[in-house]
């Protein structure tokens, strides 16, 4: 259990500040063992309770997933999938959806507002609402489709990994409430070690493809899953197999910004030196006299 994590900031959106590195950070992680989850939604309720969130009552469309999607008041959501395996048996796959707290967060990369998204040294990615301008760029940057914009205040919301609890040495509310300990929380290294034991156990029980979901495309995540079918994460309500920041977003936030500023500066400097080199294009007396002659001619006719 990580105690009193430093709240030093590793990355800050739209900022060039360098991170303080003297203290050497301990990274934390939440491990969700899908194989142990019984779908009781205690975590979902605990999240609402701790963060004081209430979604408006929605419609029952005949599935257990409720509400139907993440929203500004639903930061974590149990997604239920009925999967018929090749043996013809039904498997009820239940995945706790929410922010994955990527090491390389697409939301933070896309955000144009300085300090609206921060990543703490412990790996938690958090939205600082007072700096959020509601542009929804984070929604486009996220490879997991997590942030939601409130229609009330036009600000972005998502799971904070209970940064307020973690910073005082408490586990996130969801982990605390889970009756089967399918959700556990600690240092990332400890969680990986714990996952390894669970995976060995699952393999002995016939789940030969059991494995850890800590996708390298986003530099690893600070919310990880133990999956019985780690070879096909899409089975779990479309968990992306190889998530990474979209190439479109990478171009937009990478080369285009640099090239854009460079070209604009070049245009300004170039025009200035053209003027210096060639001088203004001025109308001379010859031109005016020629025009006057044309006037005389046209007046005469």
């Amino acid at each position: 259990m990580a105690d009193y994590q430093s709240l030093d900031i590793r990355r800050r959106s739209a900022s060039t500040d360098s991170s303080p590195d003297v203290r050497g950070a301990i990274e934390v992680a939440k491990l969700i063992d899908v194989s142990k989850c019984i779908g009781c939604k205690a975590c979902q309720a605990a999240c609402m309770e701790w963060n004081d969130l209430r979604s408006p009552i929605g419609d029952n469309i005949g599935v257990y997933t409720n509400p139907q999607d993440l929203d500004p008041n639903t930061w974590t959501l149990m997604r239920f999938t009925e999967y018929e395996n090749p043996d013809g048996n039904l498997e009820w796959l239940i995945r706790k959806d929410g922010c994955m707290h990527c090491s390389d967060p697409g939301c933070l990369k896309a955000c144009p507002s300085p300090g609206a998204i921060v990543q703490y040294q412990n790996g938690i990615v958090d939205f600082i609402s007072e700096n959020c301008i509601g542009c929804t760029y984070c929604v486009k940057g996220c490879p997991f489709n997590i942030p939601r914009i409130s229609s009330v205040d036009r600000k972005a919301y998502k799971c904070t990994l209970c940064v307020d609890r973690v910073s005082v040495g408490q586990a996130p509310a969801c982990a605390k409430s889970c009756p089967t300990q399918a959700i556990v929380f600690g240092t990332k290294a400890d969680m990986i070690a714990h996952a390894d034991e669970r995976i060995i156990d699952l393999k002995t029980r016939g789940f030969t493809n059991a494995g850890l979901y800590d996708p390298p495309g986003v530099g690893g995540t600070h919310v990880m899953y133990v999956l019985h079918h780690a070879d096909s994460p899409q089975l779990y309500a479309n968990l992306p197999k190889d998530p990474k920041i979209s190439t479109l977003v990478a171009i937009w936030k990478g080369g285009l910004k640099v090239a854009g500023l460079g070209l604009m500066a070049a245009a300004a400097v170039g025009s200035f030196f053209h003027y210096v080199a060639k001088g203004p294009d001025e109308v001379d007396d010859h031109d005016e006299m020629a025009a006057e002659r044309m006037k005389e001619e046209s007046d005469r006719s």
Partner: peptide, 25 residues
């Protein structure tokens, strides 16, 4: 920049006319 470099152009958009010499050139 063209408006700054090419003298006599500004009055086309400010005043609506240009000198005959400008048009000739």
């Amino acid at each position: 920049y063209a408006g700054i470099w090419i003298k006599g152009t500004g009055r086309a958009m400010m005043r609506g006319n240009v000198t005959g010499g400008w048009a000739y050139r």
